[in-house]
Design a protein around this nucleic acid. Structure first.
Length: 359
DNA sequence: AAGCCGGGGAA
DNA sequence: TTCCCAGGCTT
């Protein structure tokens, strides 16, 4: 020991062997066999998929990825697209700041980089919506850079391999260092994807399939028979409840009143039906007297929607009314055209509560 | 360092 | 129900 001789890192080679046999076909992925035949990953595809995959499951991303590529085949197309179209296409996927930054990033690549993505971690991270993870992932997968890629899956794998007791997120730097030590110079992109596949399919949060894991003989958590103890996380807070009211005004021609939310904050830049403020306590703010204009608003019941940091209970009201100019701005949209709007899920729920056949 | 920011599928 | 997902930005 302590001879100064570097211990050979065989993790990378072992995992790549496993990956070559078990890798999953994904729309943005180049299979190892195709790569061997000379096919390269498309940086635009890799970037687009990685942004969509932030805190989002593969299954949820697939249809959105296909839709975006059909609408905007190249990064220049996305850069030239109307922002409203991008927001409408993203509607339902969540974390809408991602869509705003996606557009800004495409514009920056088209304008400042001639439509070519930077091929280094630092260059990528300087772009909007690209942080530590995405910069490393795109650098490794699209440009074959030896970058340390660490997402939630990799955190789980690493914390179990080395039985890291320190709770997240404080232990993240140590875990990142471990990933950097394990990442091979050969096929770093496949190594990164293999680590994430391992976390998604074998080293799962609950009941991991350790018997099938290529690392089981050198995993400290498995050796101690306590894989589910890792990763250690700080306790999370309870979700408060907020209440409010949503108002669905319908004309005889079948148009409803919509508004655009402010650009920043919750559901920023997305479309909504008029609502009251969402308050922590019931203070009478859920009654029809807070509607965008007076009328005999009919109560349609309540919907519940859970956001990241609070639960929202909206009382929904409906009113048949002639088309009028409203003070708060907004526009009247045919119910038959709602699918083309940038309506987040909570707003679709509210509209369906008032008009069950709206979608 | 901590808070803000969606939505849905799996267990 | 609870968990958490190929996280980033702001304060």
């Amino acid at each position: 020991m302590h001879s100064g001789v570097k211990i050979p890192n065989t993790y990378g080679a072992e995992l790549l062997t496993w990956y070559d046999r078990h890798h999953r076909e994904l729309p943005w992925r180049v299979s190892p066999s195709a790569a061997k035949a000379g096919k390269f990953a498309n940086p635009y595809h890799i970037w687009l998929s990685e942004v969509m995959l932030q805190q989002t499951t593969v299954q949820a991303v697939k249809p959105y990825f296909a839709k975006f590529l059909a609408l905007w085949p190249r990064v220049e197309d996305l850069a030239a697209a109307p922002a409203d179209d991008v927001m409408a296409a993203w509607a339902g996927l969540g974390y809408y700041a991602r869509a705003r930054n996606l557009k800004k990033c495409a514009e920056a690549v088209a304008r400042d980089h001639g439509g070519i993505f930077p091929d280094t971690e630092a260059g990528l991270k300087a772009l909007p919506g690209i942080g530590d993870y995405t910069a490393a992932a795109v650098a490794a997968i699209a440009f074959n850079r030896q970058a340390a890629v660490m997402d939630g899956n990799v955190e789980r794998v690493i914390s179990r391999l080395f039985a890291i007791d320190g709770p997240l997120p404080g232990s993240k730097p140590l875990m990142k260092q471990k990933v950097a030590e394990l990442t091979p110079a050969d096929r770093p992109g496949d190594f990164a994807q293999a680590m994430m596949d391992l976390g998604a399919t074998i080293c799962t949060p609950k009941r991991p399939a350790c018997a099938l894991c290529p690392f089981n003989s050198r995993c400290l958590a498995f050796a101690n028979d306590e894989p589910e103890r890792f990763p250690v996380k700080a306790p999370k807070k309870a979700k408060p409840v907020r209440v409010g009211a949503a108002f669905v005004a319908v004309t005889p021609d079948g148009e409803i009143l919509l508004r655009r939310r402010i650009e920043t904050g919750l559901l920023g830049g997305m479309t909504e039906v008029p609502t009251t403020a969402w308050t922590a306590r019931f203070d009478g703010g859920t009654t029809p007297e807070h509607a965008p204009f007076p009328g005999n608003w009919e109560a349609c019941g309540q919907i519940v929607h859970v956001f990241t940091h609070f639960e929202l209970r909206l009382s929904v009201y409906r009113l048949q009314h002639e088309k009028i100019e409203t003070e708060g701005g907004g526009w009247w949209e045919p119910v038959t055209n709602l699918e083309a709007q940038a309506l987040p899920t909570v707003m679709k729920k509210a509209i369906v509560q008032a008009i069950p056949l709206a979608f």
